[in-house]
Amino acid sequence: MPAPLLYAGLMSGTSMDGVDGVLASFDPATQRPLHVLAHAHRGFADKLAAELLALNTAGPDELHRAALAGNRLMQVYAEVVAELLARATCVPMQVSAVGAHGQTVRHRPQAFGGPGYTLQLANGALLAELCGITTVCDFRSADLAAGGQGAPLVPAFHAGSFAASGEDVAVLNVGGIANLTLLPADDRAPVRGFDTGPGNVLLDLWCREKLGCTFDAGGALAARGTVQPALLRGLLDEPFFALPPPKSTGRDLFHAEWLAGRLAKATELAPTDVLATLAELTVHSVVDALTTQMPSVRRLLVCGGGAFNTHLMRRWQALLPAVAVQTTAAAGIAPDQVEALAFAWLAACRMNGRPASLPAVTGARGPRVLGAVYAAPAG
Rank of each mutant, 00 (worst) to 15 (best):
P246F: 00
L37D: 12
T277M: 02
M11E: 13
F44W: 05
T282Q: 00
A122R: 01
L358M: 14
S285F: 03
L202F: 06
R262Q: 07
S12M: 05
F194P: 02
E83I: 00
Q31A: 13
G371E: 06
K210I: 00
G332N: 09
R224V: 06
D187P: 14
S161N: 07
L5N: 04
Q293E: 15
T292Q: 14
V287K: 02
P377M: 08
C131S: 08
R314Q: 14
L6K: 07
P155E: 04
T291H: 05
D336N: 13
A49Y: 01
V338R: 03
L269I: 05
A289W: 09
F26T: 06
H284A: 14
G197F: 01
A372S: 15
D237C: 07
A279G: 15
L236G: 04
R251G: 07
G176K: 01
A54E: 10
D252Y: 02
L319K: 15
F343Q: 07
A151C: 12
V171I: 14
G70L: 09
F26G: 10
G234F: 01
P321L: 09
A360I: 00
M93V: 13
A163F: 04
E268M: 12
P295I: 10
F26W: 12
Q31C: 13
L6G: 00
P152F: 03
L301H: 05
T291D: 08
R188K: 15
A189V: 13
L52P: 01
L10R: 10
D187F: 12
R87M: 13
A322R: 11
D27M: 04
P229T: 12
A66M: 14
D27I: 01
S141I: 05
G306A: 07
C213S: 10
L172Q: 11
S25E: 12
A69C: 12
H284Q: 15
D138A: 05
P92G: 09
F139H: 09
L127F: 07
A220C: 07
Q103Y: 03
P2R: 14
L127W: 06
G150D: 03
F254Y: 06
A8I: 12
A378R: 13
L6D: 05
A318K: 13
A329W: 00
G160P: 08
A29R: 13
L281Y: 02
P355K: 05
P2T: 12
T135R: 04
V297Q: 02
Q94P: 05
L312F: 02
L10P: 11
Q326N: 09
D143S: 10
P295H: 10
A279S: 15
P198N: 14
S25Y: 10
Q120F: 07
T118W: 04
L231D: 05
L130C: 04
K210N: 14
A125H: 14
I333Y: 00
R354V: 14
A178I: 02
N123R: 03
Y374L: 04
M351R: 14
G160R: 11
R72V: 13
A38F: 08
N173L: 02
G132Q: 11
Q337G: 06
C207S: 13
E167V: 07
A128K: 02
D61L: 10
A347R: 05
P271Y: 11
P245Q: 08
A318T: 09
